[in-house]
């Protein structure tokens, strides 16, 4: 089947999509958007977090056909061209990245949190990111990064 949708502002189509394919598979294997990661395929790790019509979801749990006509934003669409988004910059500076596999999903999830809650408490950050597993950092530097991004976004 053919699936057509918007990703990061661009209209895209994927042909000969197998009906059982997830949005994540289409993004990675058919559109070459490797930012969203495949780590569990059951919504338990958050590594494939993307926006579908502005809502934060796990791309692995969206059936490809369900993306038809939708507006998708992936981690590749968070930055403004080559300039990192403040959330991304904060992750780099705070040391919130070790192996980096969870990072794209966390960037999107943290971005979503700060859209709704510009000045989150540590507890609010913990709750909002509870669906994003990180195996390397123990999360402390990730919490630091979100606070840092919030501060910077508030002051601009």
């Amino acid at each position: 089947m053919k699936v057509t949708f918007t990703v990061n502002g661009q209209r895209v189509s994927a042909d000969e999509v197998w009906e059982g394919e997830s949005l994540l598979y289409i993004l990675r294997e058919r559109l070459g958007l490797y930012g969203s990661k495949n780590a569990c395929e059951q919504g338990e790790c958050g590594s494939c977090s993307v926006y579908v019509d502005g809502t934060l979801v796990c791309a692995c749990l969206v059936l490809g056909g369900q993306a038809q006509g939708r507006d998708i934003v992936t981690v590749e669409g968070i930055a403004d061209g080559h300039a990192l988004h403040p959330v991304q910059q904060a992750f780099v500076e705070a040391g919130a990245v070790q192996c980096g596999f969870c990072t794209p999903g966390l960037i999107v999830a943290a971005h979503d949190l700060l859209r709704h809650t510009p000045e989150p408490t540590t507890v609010e950050i913990r709750e909002a990111l509870a669906g994003n597993i990180c195996r390397c950092t123990g999360y402390a530097k990730i919490l630091d990064a979100v606070h840092l991004a919030a501060e910077r976004m508030a002051s601009t």
Partner: peptide, 27 residues
Amino acid sequence: PIAGGTDVMVEINFDRSRPDSVIDLAS
């Protein structure tokens, strides 16, 4: 029928089920 996919997609991704067709309720 599939809505949010949080159950159905796990079944498909883990190769536990291969439905003949699906009905998208999310739309």
